[in-house]
Write a protein that binds this DNA or RNA. Structure first.
Length: 565
RNA sequence: UGACCCGUGGUGUAAUUGGCAACACGUCUGGUUUUGGUCCAGAAGAGUCCAGGUUCGAGCCCUGGCGGGUCAACCA
């Protein structure tokens, strides 16, 4: 894809996080250093919601001359996998961000975390609880009722150290005991009621192998990792807001200087007509409602990439939607607008017929092939021109012909003259139908004087149609996508499963499409505008036998609106 | 019902330290056009959840309501 034209800059409004950072810098906090991190758990593919977070974290650092770490939050080996690690790195890079040499894993800190846990035990701030999960849970209380203290709460330090060492040594089965921070079972904040910080999990870890059979919980790892990496702003989503006191509590136990990372929460992205939770996306993949994580209908970054979205379009989208603590829903139309905007500027134009209707130009010489000049991108004169072959028999779009057209139909109909883009004016003389009365061919005549598309006598036509030669073309399969769900918020219905709203027509495969020869050497992911239709890119399923296109987005279509009324 | 968070056109965001609500998407008009695209011009649409209060003046401050969200995994 050509990236030659300058990227349109979306005006980024100063969001509340920028404002906080700005105030801290002018107050001299952290010596003016801004250091963020993007901390995905490698248990699934990244989606457009993560893109928002990536743009926020990397973007905030960039804005204030800071840097950003990539850190995998891999504290739960039972769910995590290197497959996800690889895809996440690919996606972040593809979006256009660089973490330099600062690639980290929470598992890098397992030794330090263990030592810190031991320190808490020695200070009487943590204890081993060997009650079963259910009992511990029942002692937690409820949001409105305080919890009860565990009978294990007052073990001696020596006892706790011994037990914890034996947990580490693998002497206990999974679920036999846990390490808990000793904070406050009566706290109005559930997360402060002696949270579990280590559990036994006899699963090999994708990085540490069999070294550990106990693993730290998220709350016991995240803030500490931030602290050790010198993170200044730990930006996360709203649901972690209630975790913040705990985050601060651990950092407070750990720190030996004035420095502490600050957790700031923002609202996660929701998009209309889709779902964004990893669990639900995983379900769509596992249960084959879509063809994998990178199915072009998925809101995953890999899906959007395969669909033909550009990194710039996603970054612009992220900038436009803003950052707040209001939990809202963004209209997908805004995302679609962002790709159209970017692709309009950079996409090579080409003509392609998706639903062909054969047209024979009866007064055009048989066997003649003319090479006509076509503009590659009217938005970018530097893109130049190309030749398009014209012949006696061509295909036009079936929708561009109507035997009995309504008032505002400008396209071809019996007796009417239209322009074939970059070619000639043609007039429809005859309609040929099959035994079912379906129109299968048109007989037209052309005006040789109108070569290139203009009439010397100044005669105007109302419409310009795209076309492809019947003999000089590339045959293609084209996959048309529609929204995956029929409901604006498929997972916001109390009693209806989101899958009930799956759109049965979200994918339509057309295998009788003809594209002008220009695309014959196109490579996977190359984007084109098929004039008058939309943006299409080459799917990786393309091989020597057939070229496959995905429709990224349709062009705005006023006729469709008129027709709809 | 405990704690924490949130409440501005249809949607998402703005509104300098309080000064007559702005931008984008969407919608609707019209113009240009060899893409019914792009582009250009314009319109409709909120009086800022409600009620009090402070003030010459409140979307911004105070009080009290109302509405919504999050939190009770050995997930993150």
């Amino acid at each position: 894809m050509s990236e030659n034209s300058p990227e349109k800059e979306v005006v980024i409004k100063k969001n509340f996080i920028h404002q906080i950072v700005e105030e801290e810098i002018s107050a001299g906090k952290n010596g003016g250093v801004v250091h963020t991190r993007f901390p995905p758990e490698p248990n699934g593919y990244l989606h457009i919601g993560h893109a928002k977070s990536i743009c926020l974290n990397f973007g905030t650092a960039q804005k204030f001359n800071g840097i950003t770490n990539l850190r995998f939050d891999d504290t739960n080996p039972s769910k995590e996998d290197t497959e996800y690690v690889d895809s996440i790195m690919e996606d972040v890079r593809w979006l256009g961000f660089d973490w330099g040499d600062r690639l980290f894993y929470a598992s890098d800190y397992f030794d330090k975390l263990f030592a810190f846990a031991l320190k808490l035990i020695e200070e009487g701030k943590a204890y081993v609880d060997d009650q079963d999960a259910e009992t511990i849970s029942s002692q937690k209380g409820t949001p409105t009722r305080p919890g009860a203290e565990s009978p294990c709460r007052n073990r001696t330090v020596a006892e706790n150290v011994d037990l914890f060492m034996r947990m580490k040594a693998g002497e206990f089965d999974e679920g036999k005991c846990v390490l808990r921070a000793k904070i406050d079972m009566a706290s109005p904040n559930m997360h402060m009621r002696d949270p579990i910080i280590y559990r036994i999990m006899k699963a090999p870890h994708h990085r540490t192998g069999d070294k550990w059979c106990i693993y730290p919980m998220y709350d016991f790892a995240h803030g500490q990792c931030d602290y050790w990496e010198g993170i200044t702003h730990s930006i996360c989503t709203l649901e972690f807001e209630v975790h913040r006191p705990l985050y601060d509590w651990f950092v407070e136990q750990l720190r030996d200087t004035d420095y502490r990372p600050r957790q700031i929460e923002f609202a996660r992205l929701n998009l209309t007509y889709t779902v964004m939770s990893k669990r639900k996306l995983l379900q769509l993949v596992k249960e084959n409602y879509v063809n994998g994580w990178d199915d072009p209908r998925m809101p995953t970054i890999s899906g959007l990439r395969r669909r033909g979205y550009t990194p710039a379009s996603i970054r612009n989208f992220s900038d436009r939607i803003g950052v707040t603590k209001v939990d809202g829903v963004i209209d997908v139309a805004l995302l679609e607008h962002s790709v159209r905007e970017d692709l309009n500027r950079i996409a090579q134009r080409v003509m392609g017929v998706l639903n062909p209707l054969k047209v024979v130009i009866t007064n055009y010489p048989e066997g003649q092939v003319e090479e006509l000049d076509a503009i590659n991108n009217p938005e970018n004169p530097d893109a130049g021109t190309r030749k398009v072959p014209f012949t006696r028999e061509i295909y036009i779009e079936h929708d561009d012909f109507m035997e009995n057209p309504p008032r505002k139909f400008f396209r071809l109909s019996p007796g009417k003259e239209v322009r074939l883009r970059y070619a000639y004016y043609v007039t429809c003389n005859e309609v040929i139908k099959d035994e079912n009365g379906e129109v299968i061919e048109l007989r037209c005549t052309y005006d040789p004087e109108t070569r290139g598309g203009n009439s010397p006598d100044g005669r105007k036509v109302k419409a310009t149609l795209h076309w492809v030669s019947c003999t000089e073309n590339v045959k293609a399969e084209v996959r048309l996508y529609d929204r995956l769900f029929t409901d604006e918020e498929p997972d916001e219905h109390k009693d209806i499963d989101f899958k009930e709203f799956l759109n049965a027509d979200s994918l339509a495969v057309l295998d009788n499409c003809y594209i002008e020869p220009f695309v014959k050497d196109a490579k996977a992911l190359d984007s084109f505008q098929f004039e008058r239709l939309g943006y299409f890119n080459v799917d990786p399923d393309t091989n020597a036998e057939k070229i496959v296109f995905n429709r990224t987005a349709q062009l705005r279509d006023n006729w469709a609106k008129v027709k709809g009324k």
